[in-house]
């Protein structure tokens, strides 16, 4: 039996409908429409300040839109019981690990707080997930003693423990050296293949996007310019898309 079929909570689709968001008088998202299929790796790419992270926060209900909606499996994310009905997880840019807890406590936090299983089983599951991400023996370390790459992997382990139907990654390779960035990219792809999960990745790292994406949305100035497979995006006639994809250090 494959691991994907062991997942008790099957992946779900995510739909974004006419999403608008303003902070004060500045509109950051100008009516975003997206349709993300269940079990795909969907990358939202774009330059800094294009509204990618704000969009990601809307996808998990951390921000409330001015208009429009995000539908998880057809249900609005604004509904009160959405995080009880669906298992959504997010890997934050900074990791978002609780600094007062050890690595193991961080990874098992969801299960401990919701009392989903006995402590013995939580410990076993935490060790299992940490091992799967190459973090064996790190259980009792504090987050401040970990490197950037390790923090990201602990954050991914914490997301996996939830047994998520959707995982959101916010800039998973930022502040990492290319070798670790490749490892994280491989992990995202592997976890998507092994678990029945929809993965949404926000990044401005073109190599990561083209390496792992089933489809890519390119955002610019709060709008989605183009959505398509990596190949379709490379063949795009849109000037902004080509400018972003072909920016180079060669002068």
């Amino acid at each position: 039996m494959s691991q994907a079929s062991q997942n008790q909570h099957p992946s779900v689709s995510v739909e974004v409908k006419g999403l608008r968001k303003s902070f004060g008088s500045v509109e950051v998202l100008h009516g975003i429409d997206l349709n993300i299929k269940a079990r795909e790796v969907f990358v939202i790419m774009g330059p800094s300040g294009s509204g990618k992270s704000v969009l990601l926060k809307h996808l998990i209900g951390l921000e409330t839109p001015n208009s429009g909606d995000v539908l998880i499996d057809g249900h609005s994310i604004q509904a009160e019981d959405m995080l009880e009905r669906y298992r959504l997880a997010m890997v934050f840019q900074s990791g978002g690990l609780l600094n007062s807890l050890t690595v193991a406590e961080n990874v098992g936090l969801y299960l401990t707080e919701h009392r989903l299983m006995p402590q013995k089983d939580i410990d076993r599951l935490v060790t299992e997930k940490l091992e799967a991400l190459g973090l064996k023996g790190q259980e009792n370390r504090m987050p401040e003693a970990l490197s950037g790459g390790m923090k990201k992997r602990v954050a991914i382990a914490r997301a996996l423990v939830i047994d998520p139907q959707v995982i959101l990654y916010d800039e998973p390779t930022s502040e990492l050296d290319p070798l670790i960035a490749v490892t994280i990219g491989q992990e995202i792809k592997r976890l998507n293949q092994e678990n029945d999960v929809t993965s949404i990745v926000v990044t401005h790292d073109r190599d990561l996007a083209f390496g792992i994406a089933d489809r890519i949305a390119l955002m610019y100035d709060g709008k989605v310019l183009e959505v398509g497979t990596p190949k379709e995006l490379q063949q795009s006639k849109n000037e902004q898309v080509q400018k972003f994809l072909n920016a180079s250090f060669k002068f």
Binding site: K57, I60, G61, L62, L83, E84, L88, A89, M90, F92, Q93, S94, G96, L97, L98, N99, L109, Y110, E113, H114, I162
Partner: peptide, 16 residues
């Protein structure tokens, strides 16, 4: 500092 470093957002995403 938990708020600034997204720890509180992390709690919310875990439905805590």
């Amino acid at each position: 500092s938990m708020r600034v470093y997204q720890e509180i957002d992390a709690l919310k995403t875990m439905n805590i």
